[in-house]
Nucleic acid binder design. Structure first.
Lengths: 343, 343
DNA sequence: CAAAGCATCCAAAGCGCTTTGAATTTCTCA
DNA sequence: TGAGAAATTCAAAGCGCTTTGGATGCTTTG
C-alpha cells in the first residue's frame, strides 16, 4: 500500500493524506481521524526512501567501527554503547547504521555517508590523540558528536567524555594511600585519547608525591583478557614486582585475576587491583559486593546521552555545541587492601 | 554533485552517465573512461535514497536485537557476529542496519522494515523453540536467514547452525570418560533453541549410559558471568555436589572459575569444566594452551557465512534455500581432568 | 449583502536516480 | 556505395513521497 493507493481509497488527494499523517494543521480533525483509521487498517507506512528523497533526510545515524587489520576485533564495550543508543533511536524514529570497516577505509565511509546521504549524522567512536576524523567531519559537513575527546584538536565540537584523568588519579591515590608504592598500569592503547588521559592521571598521582615513573610498570595494548594476563605475569616476574595493578577494562582485569590466581596470589590481600568498569551487562562487577574496586561509568548511559545529543543537534543545527564531562564513582570492592609489608 | 550536474559537465545525458557508472554494456569504452574520470574528480557517488527509490532496493540488511525488558542486555557474542557480517557487507556494498528494540515490539520492526523498505533482508538472531518470527517473515515476504534453527517449526527456511546437540553430547561423554558422574549443566535460556539442543545433547550422553537426570544439576539463564558464578556456588553447596561443569558460554565459564577459585578449588584437578567457546576476540580462550577445554565454533565465521548466504539469496531469490550445520571442535585445555576419587 | 478571512483541500512540481523506447551515428559488407 | 545491422546516445517516464502555490467553499463582519 502506498500513498497513492491510500488516497484513492479515501477519495482524497495525496497532499491531504500526507499532511494528515504528518500532523500538519491544515486538515480537519474529522478527516484526519478517518485517514488515520484507514491507514492503520491497511497497515500503511510511508516508504522510507521516497520520504527521504523528498525531505532530504535519511532518519538514520551512522556508527563506524574501525576494524584494524592487525588486531581485527570489535570491542565488546561497543555492544553496550549501542544498546543505550538504540533505545534513543527507537524512541525518535531513527535507524542505526553500522559500518565495520578496515581503519584505512574509514575516511571513505564518512565521505560516502555524506555524499550518498546514507545518514544524517554520526557518532565518532574511539577518538585518538590528534584525531584527523574530526577535521574531516567538519570539512564534509556531516553532523557528529564524539564519544570522548581528542587531545591536540582544538576545534569546537560536541562531545561527552568520562573524566578519565581524574578517575585514574583518584584510583592511584587510593592505592598509594593503602601503602602501595609499585603500581602496574595495564592501560588501553595509548594512541587512544582515553588511555592517554588515564596514564596522565596515574602520573599526576605519582608526581604529586614526588614518586618517579617506572616504565617497567607500564603496559598498553588492546584491552583483552589475554593482555591483562600476560602483562600481569610479566610484571610479577620482574625483580621488583608491583603490589598493585590499575587496569583499564574489566575484561583485562579478568586476565589479571587469572594470572594472580595461577600463582596462588590472593587478590586484595597479596596484590591489589583497581579496574575501570564500564558497567557491561554480561560482565557485571559482582552482584552485591563488587569483585573489583573500580572506577565506574556506564557506557550504556553514555550511549543514551550521546545519541540524544546528536539527535538534538540534527533537529536543531543552530543550537550551541554540547560538552559533557562525567565524573566516575570509585567504589570499593574486595580486590584492594593494604600493601603487604615485605616481611 | 548529482547525476544531473555531472552529465552537464560531461555534455552527456543522465542515461549515459548512469549506465557508464553502473557498468552497462551499451556505452563505449572511451566515453566510459571519461565519465569515470570526471566522476572521480568530482567525488561523485549516487544518492542512496534516489537510487533506492528507482531500483526498489535499499542495499541494506537488518539485524534486530530484542532487548528484553526484564534482562536488558545486548549479548557480547553479537558483537563478534556482526564483525564477521560487516566484512561481507562492506565487500558487497550493503549497509547494516541495527534495531535494538523491546522484544514485544520486534514484530512491528520487521513489518516496518518491509513496508518502509528499510532493508532488503534480515538475519534472524537467537531463534527460540517454536519461534513465531519465522512464520512472520515468511508471511510478510522479507528475505531472511536464521542464525540457528527453531525446533518445532517445520517450514523451509535458510539457516546456519552449530551442531549444539552433538557438541554437548561429546563434551558430556568426555567428562563421563574421565570418570565424572555428577556433571552440572550451566546452560543458556532454554527457551532458546540452541540451549534446548545443548541440553538434549547432555541428556543423550547420560541416557546412553543409563544414567538418570538430576534436576539439581541443571541451571538455565542469560549467560552472564554472574550467572556462572552463582550457579556454581549453589551446586557446590548441595549435599552431593558435581565434580564437573558443562558451561554454555565462556562468559559464564569465567564466573564458574571465580566460584571455584573462591573456594580454593583447582580447576582441572578438583573440578573439571568444559565450556562452549564462541571464539570471542576479547575473551580468547588462552594463548597457547587453552584455559578451558572447550567445544569451539567461531561466531565471527558464522556471521561471515550467514551474511553471505543472505546476500546470495537477495541477489537470486529463486535459488534453493541453504542449510549448513557446522560441527564443533572439542579442544582439550587445562580445565579438565579425571574425577577426583572420593578419598 | 458584498468583501474579506479562514478552514480545507488539491494539482503539480520536484527530490535524484534508473530504465524504457526511440533516435542517431557508425559499421559492415554485398 | 548504400542499406541494414550494430553501436551509441538520449528524452522522458516513473519510483513514492513532500510541499508550494493555488482553488474552493464557508463563515464573518462592516
Amino acid at each position: 500500500m502506498n500513498l497513492k493507493g491510500l488516497s484513492e481509497i479515501l477519495g482524497l488527494s495525496q497532499t491531504t493524506v500526507s499532511r494528515a499523517l504528518n500532523g500538519y494543521p491544515e486538515v480537519s480533525e474529522t478527516t484526519r481521524k478517518k485517514i488515520l483509521a484507514v491507514a492503520a487498517e491497511h497497515n500503511y507506512s510511508p516508504n522510507a526512501r521516497a520520504k527521504g528523497l523528498a525531505t532530504g533526510r535519511s532518519n538514520a545515524i551512522g556508527h563506524v567501527i574501525p576494524n584494524a587489520t592487525q588486531h581485527e576485533m570489535v570491542n565488546p564495550i561497543f555492544g553496550d554503547f549501542i544498546a543505550g543508543a538504540g533505545e534513543v533511536y527507537a524512541a525518535n524514529n531513527y535507524e542505526m547504521v553500522l559500518s565495520i570497516v578496515a581503519d584505512v577505509d574509514e575516511e571513505k565511509v564518512y565521505r560516502a555517508f555524506k555524499t550518498r546521504g546514507t545518514v544524517d549524522g554520526v557518532i565518532l567512536h574511539g577518538p585518538k590523540m590528534n584525531d584527523t576524523r574530526i577535521a574531516l567531519l567538519e570539512e564534509i559537513g556531516l553532523p557528529f558528536v564524539v564519544h570522548g575527546r581528542a587531545s591536540g584538536i582544538d576545534s569546537d565540537y560536541s562531545w561527552l567524555d568520562v573524566n578519565n584523568r581524574s578517575a585514574f588519579r583518584r584510583a592511584t591515590d587510593f592505592l598509594l594511600d593503602l601503602g602501595h608504592r609499585r603500581i602496574g598500569l595495564i592501560n588501553g592503547l595509548e594512541t587512544m585519547d582515553f588511555a592517554y588521559r588515564r596514564r596522565r592521571g596515574y602520573e599526576d598521582a605519582l608526581t604529586a608525591r614526588s614518586m618517579s615513573l617506572d616504565t617497567d610498570l607500564l603496559r598498553t595494548d588492546e584491552m583483552t583478557e589475554g593482555f591483562g594476563y600476560s602483562s600481569t605475569t610479566e610484571m610479577l616476574n620482574q625483580p621488583n614486582p608491583p603490589t598493585a595493578f590499575l587496569v583499564s577494562s574489566i575484561i583485562s582485569a579478568l586476565g589479571v585475576r587469572r594470572a594472580l590466581e595461577e600463582r596462588g596470589l590472593q587478590m586484595g590481600r597479596d596484590v591489589s587491583v583497581i579496574t575501570f568498569d564500564d558497567g557491561l551487562s554480561y560482565l557485571a562487577n559482582g552482584a552485591d559486593v563488587p569483585i573489583f574496586t573500580a572506577t565506574r561509568s556506564s557506557v550504556r548511559d553514555a550511549g543514551r546521552a550521546l545519541s540524544e545529543m546528536l539527535v538534538a543537534q540534527i533537529n536543531n543545527p543552530d543550537a550551541p555545541l554540547q560538552k559533557r564531562l562525567l565524573e566516575v564513582e570509585l567504589t570499593v570492592g574486595r580486590s584492594t587492601g593494604p600493601a603487604p609489608t615485605s616481611a
